[in-house]
Amino acid sequence: LINARDENGVTREFSQADQQIAESLASQAAVAMTNNKLIDEQRELFESFIKLMASAIDEKSPYTGGHCKRVPELTMMIAEACHQCDYGPIKDFQMTDKDRYELTIAGWLHDCGKVTTPEYVVDKATKLETIYDRINTVDTRFEVLKRDATIEMLEQKLARLKSDPAADYSDLESAHEAKLAQLDDDRDFIRKSNIGGEYMDETSQQRVRDIGEYRWQDPHGVNAKFFNKNELENLTISKGTLTDDERHIINNHMAVTIKMLAQLPFPQHLENVPEYAGGHHERMDGKGYPNGLTREQMSLQARMMGIADIFEALSASDRPYKTGKPLTECLRILGFMKEDHHIDPDIFDVFVREKVYERYAREFLPKDQIDEVKVEDIPGYQANA
């Protein structure tokens, strides 16, 4: 209970001036509380909209579902490990709560440009996939070749028997069986080639080209090459399932991300979001995209997100062209990327030394991917860096 007192300490009634002062203070307090609530609600709406956009991108493709959610989580794990590191080149890196919030927002927005990427490119599970997997069409062509080979053999057999009813035609049957076996082997090889892998050597690519020189009679009665130009281009893709043009479309999402974020009037405490979010496909040697930035031109946060994005992609089990790799394989590939000047070497060493990969794996990876990691076997890792 608050009472008014006079100069002698005796309780008295509140004066009109006292009442006006109290009402003025209460009014200002009410305005401050209302403004604070409004700011909190706007922040909540802003964050919800960002997460909604990320969820929409993940929902757009069943093969990348969760990517936009997992990358911010792993980025923050790496950032916290670097923040707590008190030795080596990263020891001076420190984050405030404002820095953490800014990096988290950047993580959620790192792939926002993918809203413009066509689904047929994002979801391309095999090399011949368009609106359907054209491997089935290729299978039909092999069956046509086998049918034609059988017809040719029977015609030759009939011609031989007409001239000599007692003629031996076992050689025709043997050659026919060998021909069918070769076509079956070629078909199995093309089926395997249709599945994108980490690397397709030149010998395998040349075999695809040789098979493409086979002739068959298409539905229009035209004697045509076995593969058209587009099919041959796709089946000889050396890595993954995307052609150069399709990969350019995928890579363009970073340019779109930067363009989109550059148009947003970020407040001062979020002013670095476009740089953090737009740099995760750059390389330390300047050979990345979209801007070809070098290590010195990038912030530590952008370099952290680069490692997070790669590790999540390697370990993800929901990609159309591969299964999730075990921890040892993910770290081995990252180690080679460090040696190739693709990722930041100091952050990678912290990532391994502080076992950030292990914390992420326990939370996001299935148990069958979590194998025993021997850090001494990881290429490029320097335990005492």
Results as ranks from 00 to 15, higher is better:
2 I>Y: 11
4 A>I: 06
5 R>Q: 12
15 S>V: 03
17 A>Q: 13
18 D>K: 10
19 Q>H: 07
20 Q>H: 08
25 L>Y: 15
28 Q>K: 12
29 A>C: 00
30 A>E: 13
31 V>W: 00
32 A>M: 09
34 T>C: 01
43 R>N: 12
43 R>Y: 12
44 E>S: 13
47 E>N: 10
49 F>R: 13
58 D>M: 05
60 K>L: 04
66 G>H: 06
71 V>D: 02
72 P>H: 04
73 E>K: 12
74 L>R: 08
77 M>P: 02
79 A>V: 10
79 A>L: 15
79 A>T: 03
83 H>F: 11
86 D>K: 14
86 D>C: 04
88 G>D: 07
88 G>V: 05
93 F>Q: 02
94 Q>I: 08
96 T>S: 15
98 K>L: 07
99 D>E: 07
100 R>D: 03
105 I>H: 03
105 I>P: 02
109 L>P: 11
111 D>C: 09
112 C>G: 01
118 P>W: 12
120 Y>T: 06
120 Y>Q: 05
122 V>W: 02
124 K>H: 05
125 A>F: 14
127 K>N: 10
131 I>H: 10
133 D>L: 12
135 I>T: 08
136 N>V: 14
137 T>W: 07
137 T>G: 05
138 V>S: 03
139 D>W: 01
140 T>S: 14
156 Q>P: 00
159 A>H: 02
161 L>G: 02
172 L>W: 02
173 E>S: 08
173 E>N: 04
176 H>K: 08
178 A>M: 06
178 A>L: 07
178 A>D: 13
181 A>N: 10
181 A>R: 09
185 D>S: 12
187 R>W: 09
188 D>N: 09
193 S>Y: 03
194 N>I: 05
197 G>Q: 10
198 E>D: 14
199 Y>V: 07
199 Y>G: 01
199 Y>Q: 04
204 S>A: 12
208 V>N: 11
209 R>S: 14
210 D>G: 00
211 I>Y: 08
212 G>T: 09
213 E>S: 13
215 R>N: 03
216 W>K: 06
217 Q>F: 08
218 D>F: 01
218 D>Q: 06
226 F>E: 03
227 F>N: 06
228 N>E: 07
228 N>W: 06
237 I>A: 05
239 K>C: 09
241 T>V: 15
244 D>W: 00
245 D>H: 06
249 I>F: 07
254 M>C: 02
256 V>R: 09
262 A>P: 00
266 F>G: 03
266 F>A: 04
268 Q>N: 11
270 L>H: 08
274 P>K: 02
276 Y>W: 08
276 Y>E: 00
281 H>A: 00
284 M>G: 13
291 N>H: 08
293 L>W: 13
302 A>E: 01
305 M>Q: 13
305 M>F: 00
305 M>D: 03
307 I>H: 03
310 I>W: 01
312 E>K: 03
312 E>I: 11
315 S>C: 15
318 D>N: 15
323 T>C: 05
325 K>A: 15
327 L>S: 06
329 E>A: 14
336 F>R: 13
339 E>N: 14
341 H>L: 13
342 H>S: 11
348 F>P: 06
352 V>Q: 04
353 R>K: 15
362 R>C: 01
363 E>I: 04
365 L>M: 14
367 K>V: 10
367 K>A: 14
381 Y>F: 15
383 A>I: 06
